[in-house]
């Protein structure tokens, strides 16, 4: 997926103070998602396992239903909105941890490769090649088959998605900094590796890493929801956006809202992060200037 990074920004490149409308809407949606995730326990009108057998498969308020269940209910009478809120929290948490793990792991390996060169670098480069040459979906499926599924394992697995992107960036930029730039100068001042990497190189490449995280985050949401949709990701009774869609697919003919609500949440969230990421890349990434 490394190629995706070079796709040109969709938004018109503006440098003025005025924010593009798309970015404003995207930020608003993401803010809503973050509030939802943080306040999930307070915001859910019902427990996600509470059954309302009298209102089974009730349609959303705007499709002829009542405001008791604004997004309708499923065939056990569970409130779709409540399940959606908890699912958003779960999916965002997984994507957040996955992204942080991938960024930390990849950046660390990239630093190691650039610092030690020689054999260490060759091993890291081979691992990068391997990671990039296999679709991660397949690797993830194989690992889930071999090791079984549990939430911590699943999150760790998501953290292996696209680590190679960070390893490439941090290795490349560190090598450039060591070759002729400030890092060589600071090393020559007698600074320890911890000082060079922690105080100088990391702050210098942070903006590039953050921009890459805006690519990884939606990718992990898509990957997680895909696996959960197949029933191989987050396992019931926990709910994520993907397994909500997977569950709703059974009722697509007479209760499509069960599936449409989480599907819309996935698409809007990934779309918003991508828009924001494109915009951030234009403004932040010094390598593109």
């Amino acid at each position: 997926m490394a190629l995706v990074e070079r796709a040109p920004a969709l938004t018109v490149r503006r440098r003025g103070p005025a924010l593009p409308l798309g970015v404003v809407l995207a930020s608003a949606w993401l803010a809503l998602m973050v509030v939802t995730a943080l306040g999930a326990d307070v915001l859910t009108p019902y427990s996600i396992t509470a059954l309302d057998l009298k209102a089974r498969l009730a349609p959303p308020a705007l499709m002829g239903g009542t405001w008791a269940h604004p997004l309708g209910t499923d065939e056990l009478g569970r409130d779709v909105l409540s399940r959606l809120i908890m699912s958003i929290r779960m999916s965002l948490l997984i994507a957040l941890f996955g992204t942080l793990i991938a960024a930390t792991l990849g950046t660390g390996l990239g630093f190691l490769a650039a610092h030690f060169r020689k054999a260490v670098e060759q091993v890291v480069l081979m691992a990068i090649d391997f990671q990039a040459s296999m679709p991660f979906m397949i690797i993830a499926l194989a690992v889930l088959a071999f090791l079984g599924n549990s939430l911590p394992l699943f999150i760790a697995l998501m953290g292996f998605h696209s680590w190679e992107r960070y390893a490439r960036i941090s290795r490349g930029l560190t090598l450039a900094a060591n070759e002729q730039g400030y890092a060589a100068a600071i090393r020559q001042l007698g600074a320890s590796p911890a000082r060079i990497y922690g105080l100088h190189i990391l702050p210098n490449i942070a903006s590039t890493l953050i921009v890459s995280m805006t690519l990884t985050f939606p990718e992990i949401i898509l990957l997680e929801s895909g696996l959960s949709f197949l029933g191989l990701g987050v396992q019931p009774p926990l709910a994520s956006l993907g397994n909500m869609v997977g569950y709703g697919r059974e009722y697509i003919t007479h209760a499509p809202w069960i599936m449409l609500a989480p599907a819309a949440a996935i698409v809007l969230t990934t779309l918003s992060i991508s828009l924001l990421g494109d915009w951030l890349r234009d403004r932040l990434d010094p390598t593109l200037r």
Binding site: S225, G242, V245, G246, V267, T270
Partner: peptide
């Protein structure tokens, strides 16, 4: 195409 998962 980038942001919509294939199952959706």
């Amino acid at each position: 195409g980038f942001t919509m998962p294939s199952f959706v």
